[in-house]
């Protein structure tokens, strides 16, 4: 029995020692991403692969498509002179900040809301799309808006998203179930695992577009301004992206892309 306790204790201590290993706060002023982009002559964008209309990998063609993708191409054209000087890597709500900090992607354009908390970890460009959190339900559902998410109801959300935190504040009585990504969360809604799926309306429109049995209800109850995120401290890159974004907007290209994908 003594040996039991001793070994358990030693293991736990070993884990704690790992915890004591001084933590260096990551982020601030690390590698210059702007120079890296110049050197590799392309921009590596982190994009969603499971979000219809914004970033969606079409399993039949293997190509990623959507608003974020087209915008990334347009930005590359402004910044590097060729819209094909881009590479796309998949990110999820949970992986996008780590991937940015790892240097695996140069910029994240993945339905990412600019928030005060996130600004502490990454830098954002100007708003490129204005979304708002809403609810997606099966047509004919009793849920007509956020006020119907009472005790006994279940709301589905995605781990690491602002909407998972918001919904707990706005509808404290509902049980929130969180999934790894939007694909899984929507599969869960279709499987009847919850009464409503909550996230930004822009993403929900994509799901309603995919399966006409589902609809958005109750309008938006938050404001979710999307920005392009880069690793903290890369102000030069943020400036360049903002300039390119402005050029894309001024040339009318932005409206063209927007009307191609967002029809609501």
């Amino acid at each position: 029995m003594k040996r039991f306790l001793k070994l358990t204790l030693i293991s736990i201590l070993a884990v704690m020692m790992l915890g004591a290993c001084g933590k260096e706060k990551v982020g601030g002023g690390a590698k210059n991403v702007d120079a890296k982009i110049k050197k590799q002559d392309k921009i590596i964008f982190g994009v969603k692969n499971d979000t219809r209309l914004f970033g969606y990998k079409n399993p039949s063609t293997g190509k990623v498509e959507g608003f974020d993708i087209d915008l990334a191409h347009a930005l590359a054209k402004e910044m590097l002179g060729d819209e094909n000087k881009v590479e796309f890597k998949e990110v999820t709500s949970k992986t996008r900040i780590p991937m940015l900090n790892n240097g695996e992607v140069d910029a994240v354009i993945a339905t990412m809301t600019i928030s005060e908390e996130r600004k502490k970890e990454v830098d954002f460009t100007d708003v490129y799309f204005q979304a708002g959190q809403s609810l997606l339900v099966k047509k004919g559902s009793n849920i007509k808006g956020i006020e119907d998410l009472k005790k006994g109801t279940k709301a589905l959300a995605v781990k690491g998203s602002t909407s998972a935190i918001n919904i707990r504040e706005k509808a404290p009585e509902t049980q929130v179930l969180e999934f790894e990504n939007y694909g899984e969360a929507f599969t869960a809604l279709k499987s009847g695992k919850g009464d409503a799926l909550t996230t930004d309306d822009a993403i929900l429109y994509g799901m309603a577009d995919e399966d006409p049995d589902y609809e958005l209800v109750g309008g938006t109850f938050t404001e979710e301004p999307y920005g392009i995120a880069v690793k903290k401290g890369n102000t030069a890159l943020v400036d360049k992206l903002n300039k390119a974004l402005k050029a894309v907007k001024d040339s009318g290209k932005y409206e063209e892309i927007k009307s191609k994908w967002i029809k609501h």
């Binding site: 736990i12 884990v15 998972a164």
Partner: peptide
């Protein structure tokens, strides 16, 4: 996952989880 999304740290959150499993 829920705790780390709220606390904005992962390292410590998962170390405590590891301890619960080891126990």
């Amino acid at each position: 996952d829920l705790i780390s999304a709220r606390a904005f740290v992962t390292f410590d959150v998962y170390l405590f989880v590891a301890m619960f499993y080891l126990v």
